[in-house]
Design a protein around this nucleic acid. Sequence first.
DNA 1: TAAATAGGTTAGTAATACTTACTTACCTTA
DNA 2: TAAGGTAAGTAAGTATTACTAACCTATTTA
Lengths: 198, 198
Amino acid sequence: MESEQKKSYPPGKIKIMNALSELMREKDFHSITTADIATTAGVTEGLIYKYFKDKKDLLYQVLNGHFQTFQNYIVSKIETRKSNIEKLSIIIKTTLKSYSINRVFARILLLEVRNSPNYFESDAYDMVKIYSRTILDIINQGIKDGEIKEDIDPHALRQVILGSIEHACLGEVIFGKELDTDKVSEHICNIIFRGAKK
Amino acid sequence: MESEQKKSYPPGKIKIMNALSELMREKDFHSITTADIATTAGVTEGLIYKYFKDKKDLLYQVLNGHFQTFQNYIVSKIETRKSNIEKLSIIIKTTLKSYSINRVFARILLLEVRNSPNYFESDAYDMVKIYSRTILDIINQGIKDGEIKEDIDPHALRQVILGSIEHACLGEVIFGKELDTDKVSEHICNIIFRGAKK
DNA sequence: TAAATAGGTTAGTAATACTTACTTACCTTA
DNA sequence: TAAGGTAAGTAAGTATTACTAACCTATTTA
């Protein structure tokens, strides 16, 4: 059920990371105490600080662990397609699905890390930048290939795509609502690519 | 310079709220201590708990204060317009501008409150719901009036609109970047209403 | 065999959100 | 005009919690 970490990490470290992951399904990060984490993991509080600089570092590393799953899932889906619009559609659908499958990941990424400045110097954020860059590249290629209108601002389009995805997930992440990712992504793509105006 | 609160609040309460507001321009909520707030306000820590249930309640009330400014600004702009598309465009532009002018407000709304469940029972969240409902109503009216395609899902369109706005502000809020709100909102509207696909 | 290293524990400490008991000043209204 | 009530504010805590330092013990390594 748990166990995303396959690395040759010491067992205690894995237990700690899984414990936080588990607790974050119910509570927000700030109201989870280090004592909580330790007892859930079945280790002592002190051990947390053997493996993690501080509580936030633990959060970032958990985030990074989930990122692996995310990246693999995304990459496995895009490559085969030739059309850039199709690629973007796949990214939208796949990202939505990833967030849906992996809600703790979504919760950390969308709600918990963004308010602490040092997150933006973390490895996890580097991965976000790569992901985000990928989208921009596809957009630019799409404009070059004549699939996307040339009067579209690439950065703006990326913003609309990312914003739509994230906002669509919020209800899910915050209230635990179910989300029909196929349907929602279709609706979003419909709006973004074909436009809402008659 | 400060002073948004005109209500007949006791002076200490106003000072406390303004103090938090001020501190939040530089730090994130969690790294601001109650001692910080008290000294900045020129009162004692105890007084905070005379007027606010806890630190988060203070945050929510500050948010509510800023909401007043926000609502007034928005409302003053929409009413005169007749076209629904135009109304939505104005909302996008005006919201972006509001966030830009009032960054502390944006920071609280987009980064700080969403991760604590009891925010969603606060008065502040009720105002968000009203704002959000307004957008949905305009969309539905737009479909009825034949301005917006009838195969568009109203909730999805709202999500795209809100998501685009919020994501566009993130850089601003997190990194303090400047944002050309007129330009950005134009780009966003261009994509959402006319579509990105050639 | 000595020593270093890895995995883990115990028992703290400092900081910080929040409380309780108290003071002072102001406003009723009888 | 004085008593009583209340609103505004203070002082001095307490309990919780993130984090630390020193210690233990087994297993590898030289």
